[in-house]
């Protein structure tokens, strides 16, 4: 973290009234990396993302994008280089999926001339066949893929000359396993094209498989960050998530495979392996 990062947060704090939601967070996000944020519910992950994208003004500390404080950026110039995917959104009126994706070009003011890029993004998010459908008639997972295509179009699929950033709040929460992997493969491809990707995940195994760096949060603090192998240890997982954890090798990928079970002794036995909070162990196709 010595080289200046594209998105840099220093001593970031945010509190509502006297309740601190994010405490003293230091984080740098550089082009080419996929940073996954993990943590239990209420750990401050979404709040951190909202601070990083400027939706919330920090109570202390500062966020810089490309060296300049967020507040000093013109909104539109920032929007050209940084896209944010919210957790869920409701769209009134009968916009089609294609029209929604095209809205990603708003800050570039070239919606009319970018149909090919819109279609390309939708193909990469496997939703091109939905382009003519009305968005609110789609399933949750289909909507999520359409919104992902919209943020990709906003940063020009990472093909622009200036480095850009992508902030994703649980982008795979409604997706089936195949599309979860496809979306995160896409995040990796964006990173390979030079985009800095910040993604909130809940699935430890997905994070282990696709993140180049893991940030662990608990009670508003970043408790650890580093390579997946360094961070996702049984001790760390059990202390942050309050579960029993076991880490071994994923027979399909050779990477990490993480298994968890509730910490309290009253768990029956192996039947609880697929408990929420750690969906380890299921066969997945990468």
């Amino acid at each position: 973290m010595n080289a200046p990062a594209l998105l840099q947060a220093n001593a970031l704090g945010y509190r509502v009234g006297r309740i601190p939601l994010v405490v003293d967070a230091d984080l740098g996000l550089s082009g080419g990396e996929v940073v996954a944020v993990l943590g239990p519910n209420g750990a401050g992950k979404s709040t951190l993302l909202k601070l990083l994208c400027g939706l919330f003004a920090p109570s202390s500390g500062m966020v810089r994008f490309d060296g300049c404080p967020l507040a000093a950026w013109l909104r539109r110039e920032l929007a050209v280089r940084r896209a944010v995917l919210p957790q869920h959104s409701v769209v009134p009126f009968d916009f089609t999926a294609g029209e929604i994706v095209a809205l990603g070009r708003s800050p570039h003011r070239d919606i009319r001339w970018q149909r090919p890029m819109v279609l390309r993004a939708m193909e990469r998010c496997e939703c091109a066949h939905l382009a003519g459908r009305v968005l609110r008639t789609l399933s949750g997972g289909e909507m999520q893929r359409v919104q992902l295509a919209r943020v990709l179009v906003q940063i020009g699929l990472g093909e622009g000359s200036a480095p850009s950033a992508l902030l994703l709040d649980e982008p795979v929460s409604s997706l089936d396993p195949a599309h979860q992997h496809a979306a995160l493969v896409l995040a990796r491809e964006m990173a390979a094209a030079g985009v800095a990707v910040f993604v909130i995940l809940h699935d430890l195994n997905l994070a282990a498989q696709y993140a180049s760096r893991i940030v662990l949060m608990k009670s508003g603090r970043i408790v650890a960050q580093g390579l997946p192998e360094e961070i996702l240890t049984p001790g760390m997982i059990s202390s942050v998530f309050d579960v029993q954890a076991h880490v071994s090798a994923n027979p399909l990928t050779g990477g990490l495979a993480i298994f968890v079970k509730p910490r309290s002794g009253n768990a029956q036995d192996g039947a609880n392996h697929s408990q929420p909070g750690g969906s380890g162990g299921r066969a997945q196709h990468a």
């Binding site: 539109r76 896209a83 959104s89 708003s106």
Partner: peptide, 15 residues
């Protein structure tokens, strides 16, 4: 059009 996506989203799109 951007506000149809949500007010925060329209902000992220530069409005």
């Amino acid at each position: 059009n951007a506000i149809a996506l949500g007010e925060a989203e329209a902000g992220h799109l530069g409005f």
